[in-house]
């Protein structure tokens, strides 16, 4: 499955006869990374499923015009970030229309998440992350869970490495305080 490099997958995708095959390989290669990245942001499995499908449909539509200025996986992450934030923005608007607080809505989603079986301390960690501002959440998740380097995160988010380090540091401090509070 992963014997194909990203460049080989792009080449295959650009060959009309191999397009679907290449796309299938690409989905299999990145589906879990993208899913868990999105899921940590949007919390609910069904929401994550919708967002992930939209992300891959966008990738399918735009891969032909991918210019290879950046690495394929940073491009995928960029699409994932944009789609997730756009989903959360729409959800936020729905929250305001229904006069509910978006944070309360997210916490409710966390508590009602049926596809979650973490320990008590893992739940506290999850709640602490959800309470962070979106930018800090993104940086923390990419660094802590996905092991991306600051250079890669900088490429994805278009933010300087220095600013990212500061965001991560603040996020870690807040999370530590929140998780160890009880």
């Amino acid at each position: 499955m992963s014997e194909f490099t990203d460049n080989e997958l792009i080449e295959l995708f650009r060959n009309a006869d191999m397009k679907h095959y290449a796309f299938n390989l690409l989905v299999r290669k990145y589906q879990e990374k993208i899913y868990f990245f999105v899921r940590r942001l949007v919390i609910d499995h069904d929401d994550a499923d919708d967002v992930v499908q939209n992300i891959f449909i966008k990738i399918y539509k735009n891969l032909d015009s991918f210019r290879e200025d950046s690495k394929l996986f940073t491009w995928l992450y960029r699409i994932a970030v944009n789609e997730s934030l756009s989903f959360l923005k729409n959800k936020r608007i729905h929250c305001y229309l229904s006069l509910a607080s978006p944070e309360a809505m997210m916490m409710k989603a966390l508590q009602e998440d049926t596809h979650y079986d973490g320990t008590e301390i893992q739940k506290r960690l999850r709640e602490a992350i959800v309470k962070l501002p979106k930018k800090q959440q993104l940086v923390f998740n990419m660094r802590y869970y996905d092991d991306l380097s600051y250079a890669e995160i900088s490429d994805i988010l278009g933010t300087s490495v220095g600013a990212l380090k500061a965001s991560y540091h603040i996020a870690v401090k807040k999370i530590e305080a929140s998780v160890t509070a009880n």
């Binding site: 499995h45 596809h115 979650y116 079986d117 973490g118 802590y144 998780v179």
Partner: peptide
């Protein structure tokens, strides 16, 4: 808590 299994499943 370093990830590996963070409780999220599908």
């Amino acid at each position: 808590l370093r990830p590996g299994a963070d409780g999220i499943n599908t």
